[in-house]
Amino acid sequence: MSETADAHDAPTSTGIDHKKLIMWLFLASDCMFFGTLISTHLLYRKLYPSGFTDAEGHQRFIQNLFNIELTSFSTFILLMSSFLMALAVSAMHKGEIKSFRRNVLGVIFFGLIFLGCQVFEFTHFYHQGLTIQNSVLGSTFYVLTGTHGTHVAIGVLWLILMYFYSFTGKLGGHMGALDVEVAGLYWHFVDIVWIIIFTAVYLVEYLGPNGFWGTGLPAVTK
Protein backbone atom coordinates (compact mmCIF):
# COMPACT_ATOMS: atom_id res chain seq x y z
CA MET A 1 0.00 0.00 0.00
CA SER A 2 2.23 2.75 1.20
CA GLU A 3 5.54 2.72 -0.53
CA THR A 4 7.38 4.48 2.24
CA ALA A 5 8.57 2.68 5.32
CA ASP A 6 5.41 3.26 7.29
CA ALA A 7 5.99 2.39 10.94
CA HIS A 8 2.95 0.14 10.80
CA ASP A 9 4.20 -1.76 7.79
CA ALA A 10 7.71 -2.33 9.07
CA PRO A 11 8.50 -5.97 9.81
CA THR A 12 7.92 -6.78 13.46
CA SER A 13 10.13 -8.78 15.80
CA THR A 14 7.62 -11.61 16.04
CA GLY A 15 6.20 -11.44 12.52
CA ILE A 16 2.77 -10.64 13.97
CA ASP A 17 1.12 -7.41 12.82
CA HIS A 18 0.80 -4.79 15.54
CA LYS A 19 -2.93 -4.44 15.05
CA LYS A 20 -3.57 -8.13 15.32
CA LEU A 21 -1.39 -8.42 18.41
CA ILE A 22 -3.07 -5.51 20.17
CA MET A 23 -6.52 -6.90 19.39
CA TRP A 24 -5.58 -10.23 20.92
CA LEU A 25 -4.24 -8.44 23.98
CA PHE A 26 -7.53 -6.57 24.24
CA LEU A 27 -9.45 -9.83 23.97
CA ALA A 28 -7.25 -11.40 26.65
CA SER A 29 -8.16 -8.46 28.88
CA ASP A 30 -11.83 -8.77 27.93
CA CYS A 31 -11.74 -12.39 29.19
CA MET A 32 -11.23 -11.05 32.70
CA PHE A 33 -13.95 -8.47 32.05
CA PHE A 34 -16.62 -11.00 31.14
CA GLY A 35 -15.25 -13.46 33.69
CA THR A 36 -16.05 -10.92 36.41
CA LEU A 37 -19.57 -10.29 35.09
CA ILE A 38 -20.43 -13.95 34.58
CA SER A 39 -19.11 -14.97 37.98
CA THR A 40 -21.09 -12.17 39.64
CA HIS A 41 -24.24 -13.60 38.07
CA LEU A 42 -23.37 -17.19 38.95
CA LEU A 43 -22.49 -16.56 42.56
CA TYR A 44 -25.75 -14.71 43.14
CA ARG A 45 -27.64 -17.56 41.43
CA LYS A 46 -25.92 -19.87 43.85
CA LEU A 47 -26.79 -17.72 46.88
CA TYR A 48 -30.35 -16.97 45.83
CA PRO A 49 -31.57 -19.80 43.60
CA SER A 50 -35.22 -19.03 44.09
CA GLY A 51 -35.63 -16.27 41.52
CA PHE A 52 -37.52 -13.14 42.37
CA THR A 53 -40.88 -11.76 43.46
CA ASP A 54 -42.84 -9.83 40.85
CA ALA A 55 -44.91 -6.70 41.37
CA GLU A 56 -48.00 -8.72 42.39
CA GLY A 57 -45.97 -10.48 45.06
CA HIS A 58 -45.81 -13.83 43.23
CA GLN A 59 -42.68 -15.91 43.60
CA ARG A 60 -41.25 -16.39 40.10
CA PHE A 61 -38.69 -18.99 39.14
CA ILE A 62 -36.29 -18.16 36.40
CA GLN A 63 -37.18 -21.33 34.45
CA ASN A 64 -40.69 -20.04 33.91
CA LEU A 65 -39.34 -16.71 32.74
CA PHE A 66 -36.82 -17.84 30.19
CA ASN A 67 -37.90 -18.51 26.66
CA ILE A 68 -35.41 -21.13 25.52
CA GLU A 69 -36.73 -21.19 21.94
CA LEU A 70 -36.05 -17.49 21.49
CA THR A 71 -32.62 -17.69 23.11
CA SER A 72 -31.68 -20.72 21.02
CA PHE A 73 -32.72 -18.85 17.91
CA SER A 74 -30.62 -15.80 18.76
CA THR A 75 -27.70 -18.05 19.69
CA PHE A 76 -27.95 -19.73 16.31
CA ILE A 77 -28.12 -16.35 14.60
CA LEU A 78 -24.99 -15.15 16.35
CA LEU A 79 -23.09 -18.33 15.47
CA MET A 80 -24.03 -17.94 11.84
CA SER A 81 -23.02 -14.28 11.86
CA SER A 82 -19.62 -15.46 13.07
CA PHE A 83 -19.46 -17.84 10.12
CA LEU A 84 -20.27 -15.00 7.70
CA MET A 85 -17.61 -12.86 9.36
CA ALA A 86 -15.04 -15.59 8.75
CA LEU A 87 -16.08 -15.60 5.10
CA ALA A 88 -15.84 -11.81 4.92
CA VAL A 89 -12.27 -11.91 6.25
CA SER A 90 -11.43 -14.67 3.79
CA ALA A 91 -12.86 -12.61 0.95
CA MET A 92 -10.73 -9.61 1.92
CA HIS A 93 -7.63 -11.78 1.91
CA LYS A 94 -8.41 -12.83 -1.62
CA GLY A 95 -9.08 -9.22 -2.54
CA GLU A 96 -12.72 -9.88 -3.43
CA ILE A 97 -14.27 -6.67 -2.17
CA LYS A 98 -17.76 -7.44 -3.50
CA SER A 99 -17.89 -10.78 -1.71
CA PHE A 100 -16.64 -9.00 1.42
CA ARG A 101 -19.49 -6.49 1.23
CA ARG A 102 -22.11 -9.23 0.76
CA ASN A 103 -20.88 -11.19 3.74
CA VAL A 104 -20.41 -8.21 6.00
CA LEU A 105 -23.96 -7.05 5.24
CA GLY A 106 -25.06 -10.50 6.37
CA VAL A 107 -23.11 -10.12 9.60
CA ILE A 108 -24.64 -6.70 10.24
CA PHE A 109 -28.12 -8.06 9.49
CA PHE A 110 -27.69 -11.03 11.83
CA GLY A 111 -26.19 -8.81 14.51
CA LEU A 112 -29.21 -6.54 14.33
CA ILE A 113 -31.53 -9.56 14.60
CA PHE A 114 -29.64 -10.65 17.71
CA LEU A 115 -30.01 -7.18 19.21
CA GLY A 116 -33.70 -7.18 18.29
CA CYS A 117 -34.16 -10.51 20.08
CA GLN A 118 -32.45 -9.05 23.12
CA VAL A 119 -34.65 -5.98 23.13
CA PHE A 120 -37.68 -8.27 22.85
CA GLU A 121 -36.39 -10.48 25.65
CA PHE A 122 -35.70 -7.54 27.96
CA THR A 123 -39.14 -6.06 27.30
CA HIS A 124 -40.78 -9.44 27.86
CA PHE A 125 -38.94 -10.04 31.14
CA TYR A 126 -39.71 -6.54 32.29
CA HIS A 127 -43.42 -7.07 31.75
CA GLN A 128 -43.14 -10.39 33.58
CA GLY A 129 -41.92 -8.42 36.58
CA LEU A 130 -38.13 -8.82 36.49
CA THR A 131 -36.55 -5.39 36.80
CA ILE A 132 -33.03 -4.23 37.49
CA GLN A 133 -34.30 -2.80 40.77
CA ASN A 134 -36.48 -5.47 42.31
CA SER A 135 -33.93 -8.25 42.79
CA VAL A 136 -30.28 -9.14 42.64
CA LEU A 137 -31.19 -11.54 39.84
CA GLY A 138 -32.56 -8.68 37.76
CA SER A 139 -29.42 -6.60 38.35
CA THR A 140 -26.96 -9.33 37.42
CA PHE A 141 -28.96 -10.66 34.49
CA TYR A 142 -29.64 -7.33 32.79
CA VAL A 143 -26.15 -5.96 33.36
CA LEU A 144 -24.43 -9.15 32.15
CA THR A 145 -26.51 -9.66 29.01
CA GLY A 146 -26.79 -5.93 28.48
CA THR A 147 -23.01 -5.52 28.53
CA HIS A 148 -22.73 -8.33 26.01
CA GLY A 149 -25.41 -6.61 23.92
CA THR A 150 -23.41 -3.38 24.09
CA HIS A 151 -20.40 -5.27 22.73
CA VAL A 152 -22.58 -6.57 19.87
CA ALA A 153 -23.88 -3.06 19.20
CA ILE A 154 -20.34 -1.66 19.05
CA GLY A 155 -19.41 -4.47 16.66
CA VAL A 156 -22.39 -3.70 14.44
CA LEU A 157 -21.51 0.01 14.41
CA TRP A 158 -17.89 -0.83 13.57
CA LEU A 159 -18.91 -3.11 10.68
CA ILE A 160 -21.43 -0.62 9.31
CA LEU A 161 -18.74 2.08 9.23
CA MET A 162 -16.38 -0.38 7.60
CA TYR A 163 -18.99 -1.33 5.00
CA PHE A 164 -19.45 2.26 3.93
CA TYR A 165 -15.73 2.95 4.14
CA SER A 166 -15.15 0.15 1.63
CA PHE A 167 -16.88 2.29 -1.04
CA THR A 168 -14.23 5.00 -0.70
CA GLY A 169 -11.75 2.55 -2.18
CA LYS A 170 -9.38 3.03 0.72
CA LEU A 171 -10.14 -0.35 2.28
CA GLY A 172 -7.86 -2.65 0.40
CA GLY A 173 -4.56 -4.45 0.20
CA HIS A 174 -2.75 -5.85 3.17
CA MET A 175 -3.71 -3.10 5.61
CA GLY A 176 -7.37 -3.24 4.59
CA ALA A 177 -7.48 -7.01 5.02
CA LEU A 178 -5.81 -6.59 8.40
CA ASP A 179 -8.37 -4.02 9.51
CA VAL A 180 -11.20 -6.36 8.54
CA GLU A 181 -9.52 -9.29 10.24
CA VAL A 182 -9.14 -7.32 13.48
CA ALA A 183 -12.82 -6.33 13.38
CA GLY A 184 -13.55 -10.01 12.74
CA LEU A 185 -11.57 -11.07 15.80
CA TYR A 186 -13.67 -8.74 17.90
CA TRP A 187 -16.88 -10.11 16.39
CA HIS A 188 -15.90 -13.74 16.97
CA PHE A 189 -14.98 -12.94 20.55
CA VAL A 190 -18.44 -11.51 21.17
CA ASP A 191 -19.74 -14.77 19.75
CA ILE A 192 -17.67 -17.02 22.04
CA VAL A 193 -18.69 -14.99 25.07
CA TRP A 194 -22.27 -15.72 24.10
CA ILE A 195 -21.45 -19.43 23.78
CA ILE A 196 -20.43 -19.36 27.45
CA ILE A 197 -23.37 -17.21 28.53
CA PHE A 198 -25.81 -19.47 26.68
CA THR A 199 -24.62 -22.48 28.64
CA ALA A 200 -23.81 -20.92 32.01
CA VAL A 201 -26.75 -18.54 32.27
CA TYR A 202 -29.53 -20.13 30.24
CA LEU A 203 -29.12 -23.88 29.74
CA VAL A 204 -28.16 -24.77 33.32
CA GLU A 205 -31.48 -23.38 34.51
CA TYR A 206 -33.19 -26.30 32.75
CA LEU A 207 -31.19 -29.10 34.32
CA GLY A 208 -33.47 -31.40 36.32
CA PRO A 209 -36.89 -30.26 37.45
CA ASN A 210 -35.65 -27.18 39.28
CA GLY A 211 -32.56 -26.22 37.36
CA PHE A 212 -28.95 -26.61 38.38
CA TRP A 213 -29.20 -24.13 41.24
CA GLY A 214 -32.42 -25.62 42.62
CA THR A 215 -35.04 -23.45 44.24
CA GLY A 216 -33.26 -23.50 47.56
CA LEU A 217 -33.85 -20.95 50.23
CA PRO A 218 -36.56 -18.35 49.91
CA ALA A 219 -35.34 -15.46 47.83
CA VAL A 220 -34.31 -12.29 49.52
CA THR A 221 -36.61 -9.86 47.76
CA LYS A 222 -38.04 -6.53 48.49
Partner: peptide, 30 residues
Protein backbone atom coordinates in the same frame (compact mmCIF):
# COMPACT_ATOMS: atom_id res chain seq x y z
CA UNK B 1 -14.28 -20.68 17.06
CA UNK B 2 -10.99 -19.32 18.39
CA UNK B 3 -8.95 -21.90 16.48
CA UNK B 4 -10.58 -21.71 13.06
CA UNK B 5 -12.75 -18.61 12.77
CA UNK B 6 -10.21 -16.55 14.69
CA UNK B 7 -7.32 -18.17 12.78
CA UNK B 8 -5.33 -19.17 15.85
CA UNK B 9 -4.55 -22.51 14.25
CA UNK B 10 -3.05 -20.70 11.23
CA UNK B 11 -1.37 -17.87 13.14
CA UNK B 12 1.72 -17.65 15.30
CA UNK B 13 1.72 -19.78 18.44
CA UNK B 14 2.30 -16.67 20.61
CA UNK B 15 -1.22 -15.33 20.01
CA UNK B 16 -2.71 -18.62 21.12
CA UNK B 17 -0.74 -18.59 24.35
CA UNK B 18 -1.52 -14.95 25.13
CA UNK B 19 -5.20 -15.69 24.93
CA UNK B 20 -5.13 -19.07 26.63
CA UNK B 21 -3.01 -17.72 29.49
CA UNK B 22 -5.56 -14.99 30.13
CA UNK B 23 -8.34 -17.53 29.84
CA UNK B 24 -6.74 -19.83 32.38
CA UNK B 25 -6.13 -16.96 34.78
CA UNK B 26 -9.77 -15.88 34.43
CA UNK B 27 -10.99 -19.41 35.02
CA UNK B 28 -8.77 -19.92 38.05
CA UNK B 29 -9.56 -16.55 39.64
CA UNK B 30 -13.29 -16.81 39.30
Amino acid sequence: VILWFMHLIYDKRLLFWIFVAALMLTFATF
